[in-house]
């Protein structure tokens, strides 16, 4: 699982570089100092890159140290749970505005409960899904007047 520990500093470097490059390519300001919008992001992204390099070196030095959390991340059903939550979240984002709040929330919460709580407890899953979907719909949409799709 070494790649996971080393992946982070490299990812951070990429983020820093990405910000640095797009900052340098920012359009010049028409008003005030033409480079005004540029200094701060350039400075911070350079700082981030430097820090990531230090971080990478630190991690390389103690590459052998094990991290319990990383072990857990790849054991049991953890990867399944995390990936399904993310995938379901993306699907939820895509259907939320077309199917409307109630339908999409019932689908999302129901699916999530089936994955996390297990299909064996389908009765309680369905009850919780319906109860909480309607409750939040009522509380947010009706009582608090939040405009839901």
């Amino acid at each position: 699982m070494k790649w996971f520990k080393l992946g982070m500093p490299i990812f951070l470097m990429v983020v820093g570089l990405g910000f640095l490059i797009s900052a340098i390519n920012l359009p010049k300001a028409n008003l005030g100092n033409p480079n005004g919008p540029l200094y701060f992001p350039v400075g911070i992204s350079i700082l981030l890159i430097v820090l990531s390099v230090i971080y990478l070196i630190q991690e390389l030095r103690k590459a052998r140290e094990s991290n319990d959390h990383i072990r857990e991340l790849f054991s049991g059903r953890t990867p399944v749970l995390i990936i399904s939550t993310i995938v379901l979240g993306v699907v939820y984002a895509l259907i939320f505005e077309t199917l409307g709040f109630l339908v999409s929330t019932i689908l999302f919460l129901g699916a999530l409960l089936f994955v996390v709580n297990g299909p064996r407890k389908w009765v309680s899953n369905i009850i919780v899904t319906l109860a909480f979907s309607f409750m939040t719909w009522y509380a947010f949409g009706e009582l608090l007047g939040v405009s839901l799709p």
Partner: peptide, 15 residues
């Protein structure tokens, strides 16, 4: 139970 609580928190986070 955590297995019910967590999906609910996720839903509340989205809303």
């Amino acid at each position: 139970p955590a297995k019910i609580l967590y999906p609910l928190i996720v839903m509340l986070a989205f809303i």
